[in-house]
Amino acid sequence: MQLTTDRSNRGAAREEARRRKSRRGAGVSAISSVVVIGGLIALVVSSKGWPAVQETFFSWAAFKDSFPEVLRGFWLDVKLFICVEIVVLVLGLVIALCRITSAAALYPIRLLAIVYTDLFRGVPTILVIYLIGFGLPALELSGVPTSPVLLGGLALALSYSAYVAEVYRAGIDSIHPSQKASALSLGLTNTQSLRLVILPQAVRRVVPPLLNDFISLQKDVALVSVLGPLEAFRVAQISASSNFNYTPLIAAAVLYLCVTVPLARVLDRMQARRGQLDGVGTVR
């Protein structure tokens, strides 16, 4: 076979070929992006109903008018999200620990934890919000809060704790039994083994799925609107129906994206790093 390069400059030729390939790759991806995205935009914009849709959903004037108010409403979402998330992280862990307990005396607690996760994972979140938001105050018990924000937050916390408890439990189950044997052989008690050896590893392992649940909760905060508090979605809805223009809803959507997209990128990066670590391979 006839080679175009001799031994001495094969390295340079290889380098040149690699560069050519990456240039070609960049060119192809740029052109295909323009064609696909441009085509989709053209399709939407040239449709018969587009002028009407543009007026009702993408009116710049309506956006500017409604945005400050929607943003104020969104602040409530953010506060609610943070408070609920903290409660969920703690309550979820407590429930997970109740589920894995093996002491006979704690059997009722374990049973309760199982019923709890089955119940709150099985019922749609919006239903839980309705039942708690309207049902609890209807009991007219003294001391039960009646603020819809508080009740909505409580409902979200109860619902999400069930999911998060299962995430924690999966993490605990994923730690190899040899780690526990190792901890016990040092003379640690069961509780110490769990606290010092199992849980730290389990929690680290479930950070990505926990973050995934965070993103989901961040959006579901909007469900609390069914109880009436003026959070972003509710504000946008009111503004939309009073002006017959849906642009405020787009404003709310943009705000939700401002939080969820960065969270998603953080999650991506974590998973990429995790992949690298796993690639090294750990011997246990």
Binding site: S182, S185, L186, V197, P200, Q201, T282
Partner: peptide, 26 residues
């Protein structure tokens, strides 16, 4: 168990702790 030391075939070190932390845990 506190009076006995055990070394496992697969080491079973605690991967979330440094060498020193592994040693001082017990």
């Amino acid at each position: 168990r506190r009076r006995l030391g055990f070394v496992f075939q697969a080491f079973n070190l605690f991967p979330h702790l440094t060498v020193r932390e592994n040693v001082v845990l017990g």
